[in-house]
Amino acid sequence: MDTLLSGQLLFAALVSGSLYALVALGLNLVYGTLRLLNIAHGDLVMIGAYTAFWMISLFAIPPILSLFIAAALCALLGWAVYAGLFRRMLAKPELAKRVEANSLILFYGISVILQNLAALAFTSTSRGYQYLDTVITWQGISMTGNRLLSLGVAASVCFGALLFLRFHLFGWGLRAVIQRREAAQVVGVNLNRVQLLTICGGFAVAGVAGVLVSMTEQITPFMGFPFTIVAFVVIIIGGLGNIGAGVLAGFCLGLVETYGIALTSPGYRSILIYGLFVGVLLVRPEGIFTKAVRS
């Protein structure tokens, strides 16, 4: 019981919760505005992680700077996907329909390509580096600097994004596109611009998450997929396209996971995550589905 009430466990839950919220944020933004289920989202986390690794090992650039490099790199990828795919889709409505219906399979293709390109380029050897890994003890809670940094960055990006959506004019436009795409266009939201910037932003956030992950975990070409799954769990709990609830759900999942494992054993982690995933989808399919129909 003592361990359950300790700040140590709460800290661990917050660190992973903030990371889940961050990864899910990007996925949710892209789904909300573009109606695409990006199953390659976790692979962007992988790209961010490799960026951080190579920057620190080749050029001694610390991860805190790599955050920006990874964000830029993933944003560029977002732009490439948008330019390569959506320019065509705008020209052909029939193609657009097909892509939306098959977006999951389509992005699976992209995911497979990214993973295996990474495996070809960097080999499947798992990699890692040390950064800010000295232990700081505060109020009886031991934490490493990198986890503290991860929590700080992830939480500030999440809440920054929420504030932006709440108070900035562009954020209003973005929310309008999520809620009613056609109506938003009628009142003068530049759909094209919103979609392009959202996909770049959503991808960039995933890159940032990757840099944060790389500070504490092993980096492999196939590390991304579990993050995709976690992000799906989070946004399904929070509601697809519902950005604020998604961030909250991310923290909740971190809490449930950390405490669930503390009560049982680490072997149950995957069962817990997938159980939640299946459970939520089964129990509230209508509730979750209504949002998608409205598009």
């Binding site: 799906f232 995933f277 299946v278 089964l282 589905f289």
Partner: peptide, 30 residues
């Protein structure tokens, strides 16, 4: 229950279900 869920949700639900069973069997075996 699974077939009540439609569209992309059905796709990811079937995936999730398969993974759930996989991890449960792995747990039982270990």
């Amino acid at each position: 229950p699974v077939l009540r869920v439609r569209g992309p949700y059905f796709v990811i639900l079937t995936y999730g279900l398969s993974e759930l069973v996989r991890h449960v069997v792995m747990r039982i075996e270990s």
